[in-house]
Write a protein that binds this DNA or RNA. Sequence first.
DNA 1: TTCAATACTTACCTTTCTGTAAGTATTGAT
DNA 2: ATCAATACTTACAGAAAGGTAAGTATTGAA
Lengths: 119, 119
Amino acid sequence: MTSSTRRGPYICGIDAAMDVVSGKWKSLILWELNNYGTRRFGELKRGLPGVSEKMLIQHLREMEEDGLIHREVYREVPPRVEYSLTEHGKSLNEALRPLGAWGATRVERLAAEAPPATT
Amino acid sequence: MTSSTRRGPYICGIDAAMDVVSGKWKSLILWELNNYGTRRFGELKRGLPGVSEKMLIQHLREMEEDGLIHREVYREVPPRVEYSLTEHGKSLNEALRPLGAWGATRVERLAAEAPPATT
DNA sequence: TTCAATACTTACCTTTCTGTAAGTATTGAT
DNA sequence: ATCAATACTTACAGAAAGGTAAGTATTGAA
């Protein structure tokens, strides 16, 4: 058992995709790597305010196992590790784009319905 | 507090969309309603093998609150309640389509990599 | 009065997910 | 021998999600 309880028999495509994306920080990691191309562990940590080292590494490992990201280790002192998207990771990011757009309009709608107090 | 801890301040569109879709059965409910147009509580329950009544109603309530589905009550004996997608629900389903397609290719790839035993 | 049918509701419990905080490993420089 | 810097690793705890099983509500028919 390398990571968690996953890659079960899926009942549909969305099920299979959600399995890979669900995790509090995964879509943000995808986004960050898509923007920067390549990121070190410490850079990702600073780019995701609030993430704990434990969750970050756990998510990175699972995403690597799922073939979404590539991990490159440079044997230097101090050590350097760089993460980047694989082709699968890039295509997943593309597949998420319409969902992101839908979410953005939802945010706008919510803001319009419940405007902030003008204190 | 009608349902759970949700509709927090979102940091991006995907975040906002995932908040609405995350839940073990939600994407399946979306799919089911998209296929049948309108479904009764009992029909949904039978259409989602393994779902508990508690989770089904909980998810339906949250999705109604989120403006994804419409709930129509018919005051008959025995009572009848019909669920259907709103326009927001339909557009979310469309936005999920590429993700579903991505997941389907992932399923194919997994099947190709780990073929079932030919007992 | 009891039953049947449908749509929930509730209390309680188990599993899964996420967070905190401290520790490990490596090795060049001082 | 100690320190510094980076990337993890681990034990423990709390929170959130999900499951089970039994109960409620309505009212026409038998």
